[in-house]
Design a protein around this nucleic acid. Structure first.
Lengths: 337, 337
DNA sequence: ATAGGCTGTCGAAGCGCTTCGATTCCCATT
DNA sequence: AATGGGAATCGAAGCGCTTCGACAGCCTAT
């Protein structure tokens, strides 16, 4: 393994000079710089990460905590993770992958050991047990998701409240008066995941404002669960003409069931989904949807974290504005029978 | 930040003693050990990762290279990644997430900088450009996937050849004589991803042995592409009574189309899928399938890598035996009209 | 001509840990 | 009583890098 000292010797300069060439923290004459750079190339030198971390107390690593459970939004999380990793690289950082398994201990471990310079937490719950620790350890961090109390925290998330409102608006504008919401699995609501509740909140308050009736039913993914849920909805509110779906794995079952029951989309039933674009465009009916901007969230999270690490910028809550794309699954409400 | 020296002082011993308590590399009297452990707890000491890495030239980090493209098997990759991360933790390792973006350079960078002790590469292609580098830098590594030349490499993968064979066998046993394979997107074959070709190989050779006709058609995911592909298959081979699907995002469109065309599954058409169990059980027809053992692959990869890092075990190719689970989508072939 | 200020370079002091002798102490052998 | 050998502990020397202060050389302003 090639060391700084060897490069220095090869280039006929001192070790510190090589270090300054690398970091650019002091001015170096261009002849010396070139000589050093040449030696680096010829010897195939790579700075030793551990030594660097020790001397500078910076690891150039960002920790990313992803939830352990994979019961929802897996592709979204993957996309976020990839966006985080690639964005981090453009800023000179690598990404350490932590699963939720360790729980709050992971925060302690990473902060205490100097393994990472900062961390990004995904799937933050309304009252997340990692937050007190995070506040205590002045470890720079960014959350993807929105907890109940954001004091002293930086958060990035889709504005799910506005998302809910947007869905209702779109349907109301088309004349729908009875709207049903097919939500995430009950477990998601029970664990008080912020986004699910905020969406619901947005849906409900906008519905109230617009004088639209709204029915919300959680739903496990899959065909069987969907069949039960749909039957119950149509039983309770036979005039339902608009559906808002916030559950990736319920989308296709829903469309299949509607088709099977002879309800045409969008003629008899309009469907608006809250899901990644990929799901919306690959469904058997191209879905009118509000996209989950996964890449954007990952990118923003990294950029805010890097800003913090460089001493720029402070706490902030960034809510990305939702965008509704009209596709083939929504249209005017059928005239009342 | 608490240091080893502070712990030592607090416990009234030398720094080296604390180090030996931590590593267990020399015997320590139980009284001393307890005193030290108490100090560690009271001070909330965490060893500094950088210093440790520098002194021991071991980072206790495993690098995981995931492909950048997310055009296929996203949930599988996520599951593997999570399995890798959790398994690694049980062995005292953390996981560094590298995307394919950097390409072969990432291998050089990680190996050169001592950032990670070893690496796991996912989505290995038949003639992967990272392999020569890997062989050159004696960086311990494990591949998930099977390249053309496995000399000097450790690989973990599902035995896709056997998987293909198993699917054909199952259908043949039920009397099907005309089988069509709905494969991955053309791009997957073009980039010579090993698993797709090996599956096809297994399908074809077993079909030949059993005297079954086999038609293979790649297929993009999504409803529209599936419609075209299915139409073409039934046009070319109207007697097709068995389908093997190896493309997650084609599964549900396929079932929807069959339903729409009045072809009952499994009475008129048997379907066998190669996909994660979750997809198979959540589909609108519970699918007979060969599962992709994602967790198992991630776990095994880590365990082999750890074994290498500890000097145990050498190069080896581990092919996991496929298991076919019979569900509702396959049955006897319809009697010839 | 001289003081002052840049620029470019070097040497040395750590960063917090591991690890290798060396040392002490105690007990079992001779 | 002398010897040998373990067990338990310590001190010191790095690991490869960053960074601070020092200094030599040169240019500009007086």
């Amino acid at each position: 393994m090639v060391t700084l000292a060897e490069v220095a010797q090869h280039a006929g300069v001192s070790a510190s000079t090589v270090s300054y060439v690398l970091s650019g923290k002091r001015s170096i004459s261009s002849t010396t710089r070139q000589r050093v750079e040449r030696s680096i190339r010829e010897l195939g030198y790579h700075p030793n990460a551990g030594a660097r971390a020790l001397a500078s107390s910076k690891s150039n690593i960002i920790a990313l905590m992803i939830p352990l459970r994979t019961d929802m939004y897996v592709p979204v999380m993957m996309e976020i993770a990839i966006a985080v990793a690639t964005t981090a690289r453009t800023h000179g950082y690598d990404v350490l992958l932590l699963t939720g398994e360790e729980g709050p201990d992971a925060v302690r471990r990473v902060a205490g050991s100097g393994l990472a310079d900062g961390m990004i937490l995904m799937d933050v719950e309304l009252d997340d047990e990692r937050l007190p620790l995070l506040r205590a350890t002045d470890q720079p961090s960014v959350l993807i998701g929105l907890p109940a109390d954001t004091a002293g925290l930086t958060c990035v998330d889709l504005d799910f409240r506005a998302t809910g409102a947007l869905c209702v608006e779109h349907l109301a504008k088309q004349g729908h008066h009875d709207i049903a919401v097919i939500g995430e699995a009950p477990a998601v609501y029970e664990r008080h995941t912020g986004f699910a509740e905020r969406t619901l909140d947005g849906l409900r308050s906008r519905a109230r404002e617009l004088g639209v009736r709204l029915l919300h039913r959680p739903c496990e993914g899959g065909y069987d669960a969907m069949a039960v849920t749909l039957a119950r909805i149509l039983d309770e509110r036979p005039d339902t003409s608009g559906l808002v779906v916030q559950n990736e794995s319920a989308v296709e079952p829903l469309l299949a069931l509607l088709r099977q029951q002879g309800r045409a989309v969008p003629e008899d039933m309009s469907v608006v989904a809250i899901c990644p674009d990929q799901v919306a465009t690959q469904a058997s009916v191209r879905l009118t949807s509000v996209a989950i901007p996964a890449q954007e969230m990952g990118r923003r999270a990294v950029e805010h974290l890097v800003a913090k690490l460089e001493g720029r910028g402070g706490d902030e809550v960034v809510l990305l504005a939702p965008e509704l794309t009209v596709r083939a699954s929504s249209g005017p409400a059928p005239s009342r029978s």
